[in-house]
Amino acid sequence: MNKLLLFLLISTTFLQQDPGKIIARQGQVSFFSYTPVENIKAENNQVLSIIDLSDNKIAVQILMSAFIFEKALMREHFNESYIESDIYPKATFEGTIIDFDPTLEGEQTRIVKGNFTMHGATKELEIKIKIQKQRQKFMVSGSFEAEVQDYNIKIPPLLKGNIAKIISVDFKFEYEAYES
C-alpha cells in the first residue's frame, strides 16, 4: 500500500514536470506617457519571463536600468529621481494565466491575474493577453495601464504637466523551451 502510494507520488511529480517550462529572454516592454507638454517613450528589450506549463504560472522580471529613452537625461532621471533603481533595481510580476491550454495551436485570448511589484509597491493586476502558439514557440502580447500614484512615485508639482498620471505599458514575449 505504502509502496504504491510512494510510486504514485513520485510519478505525479515527474508527470508534472513533463510539460516543462518555457522562457523568454529578450522580452520587449515599452511604456508611454502622453501629455500636451511632452511625450515620453521608453523601451526595454531584455525582459525575462518564464511560464510553467504544468500549472500556468507566469513570472516576469524587468531590469529598470535597461530602459532606453529618447533623451539620455530622461533615462538618468527615471533611474535616479523617479524609480530609484539603486534601491529597487527590478520590477516583477507573478501570476497565473487563467484557462490557458498549452496544447492548443493558434491564437487564444486569456486573462492573466497576478501581482505586479515596482518601486517597492505591489498591485494586483488583471491583464488581457493574446497567446499565439506555433509549433513549440509561444508568443504572448498585451498591454495594461499603470497609475503612477499606485507605485509611490513622486512627481514634483512643477513637472506635473510633463508626466502622465496613467502610463500605458505594452509587452511582447517570445517563449522557447527552457532547459535548466
Binding site: T12, I50, A59, Q61, S65, E76, N79, E80
Partner: peptide, 30 residues
C-alpha cells in the same frame, strides 16, 4: 513531502529568472 515539492516548484519561477540574469553589468550611475 509531496506538498513541499509542489510548493517549491511554484515559488521558484522568479528565482529561475534571477539566475538567468548573470551578465548584467551594473555601474553606479549619476
Amino acid at each position: 513531502l509531496a506538498f513541499m515539492v509542489s510548493s517549491v516548484k511554484a515559488q521558484d519561477l522568479l528565482d529561475i529568472l534571477d539566475k538567468e540574469r548573470k551578465d548584467t553589468l551594473r555601474y553606479a550611475e549619476a
